[in-house]
Design a protein around this nucleic acid. Structure first.
Lengths: 243, 243
DNA sequence: GAGTGGTCTAGACCACGAG
DNA sequence: TCGTGGTCTAGACCACTCG
């Protein structure tokens, strides 16, 4: 594990919370934690802020810091572990092994819309990559991605036939760490029904967005059309305005 | 606005970014900003952290801090302003005025699942509130909410016929600031089709989750079934592990 | 090596909640 | 009034990137 002070505090507090070491559902106050861990109060606050943003605890000025009862008890529909971006990571439902079937792979001239979204110059070209994603030979998602040639000139059919994000990490030491995502639903098209084995009354869930590299370069615009039973997006939301 | 140092820095930097005062897409380094605003570096870092979490900027150790080109240019599908929780707030599409039609309002014994989710004791009862939400007399959502009697003993049909969140804020000075949300889609039921004027092939988008008060009390479990054309959930995602 | 963001400290003072 | 979390400061040292 990392050797960062605030990360260690988080790990320790999580362990204590899971061990139900705080029967009153109240954590020690920040100054006591400062004393206990022999660190500065800033580090304690940093750790607590991260945990509050993850929904593990609630802080209440004047009263103290309290454990989210649902984190401890485990809500019915909830198993939120923070966010994952890679598809291969996100949908690890069960022991099923993920597969990829390449449907289309070509170079095209991007639409004006795509040029805006990927921050392209007028004469930049992009790859179009259409892939079917499977679990144990069962298709669950049609993914269409657009990647500028200039950010990945070496892309080949071989790379595209497995996880591009993995390739980035292992071969180029770059990571996709952020994304704008838009989530919605639509009736299934004939194409959806054929690939995902859907009835005409069954819809697709759609996750669409722009993925960024560490340095902020827009890396890919992707549209994911999912069999509706496979799309479940869990999140913890905080109203804006707060840090 | 608030008189907080870091909030002022955020406001000022946003203004400067929108005015395209940084043609290189690079912000001044933190020490320069510290000097310019005559504040501590911690405050500058705090402001920049918030903006990075909102997807406005990217920070790169050893290189500098850069503006997200899409924040400036405006992506095609994107108009992300942070998160909103209240339904009346979230769906302010256009100038259409929101309406509420009460479908059902009663007190019931919660299921075991609901007891877990709202952290209830075995003999606690809950309100069940089923409402149709409209824009200019056009229904777009069926909302079923469960609120423990003990957190809102004074609930009446009158309150329930308009925004409960507004009532909380104005009358009880409490705010719903956080929620666990789960987002998915399903084929529409006969009931959905009747209320939302959907064809049998058209689906509903579903947003379901637990809403919390400031102090961490689970306040409501709500299931929102939306006309699919009205559900569009925009978000900025960061991989977990980072602060 | 110079410049940049990341982590951490030690301490001051403020704002809110409860008794 | 007192205990709690919130904001802010001033400065040290580390880790990464790039010329």
């Amino acid at each position: 594990m990392a050797d960062l002070v605030y990360q260690n505090i988080i790990a320790d507090l999580k362990k204590a919370i899971n061990a139900e070491s705080f029967p009153s559902m109240k954590l020690p106050d920040e100054r006591t934690l400062t004393e206990h861990y022999q660190v500065s109060r800033s580090s304690v606050k940093r750790a607590l802020n991260v945990m509050a943003n993850q929904g593990i605890i609630f802080k209440k000025r004047g009263s103290g810091t309290f454990i989210n009862p649902l984190y401890l008890k485990g809500g019915s529909f909830f198993n939120y572990n923070g966010s994952n971006l890679g598809v291969t990571d996100s949908f690890k439902a069960g022991n099923r092994t993920p597969g990829i079937k390449l449907l289309d792979f070509q170079v095209i001239k991007p639409s004006a819309e795509l040029q805006r979204d990927l921050f392209l110059k007028p004469d930049d070209f992009v790859y179009e990559i259409k892939r079917l994603r499977l679990f144990d030979d069962e298709p669950f998602m049609i993914e269409t991605g657009f990647i500028p040639i200039k950010v990945m000139p070496e892309l080949t059919e071989k790379i595209v036939s497995s996880s591009i994000f993995n390739y980035l990490e292992t071969e180029k030491n770059q990571e996709v760490t952020r994304a704008f995502l838009s989530i919605f639903a639509e009736p299934s098209t004939d194409d959806d029904q054929a690939h995902l084995k859907l009835k005409p009354t069954e819809p697709v869930g759609i996750m669409e967005g722009i993925f960024f590299l560490d340095d902020g370069t827009p890396f890919e615009f992707s549209t994911m059309r999912l069999h509706y039973q496979y799309m479940k997006y869990n999140t913890f939301v905080t109203v804006s305005g707060r840090e």
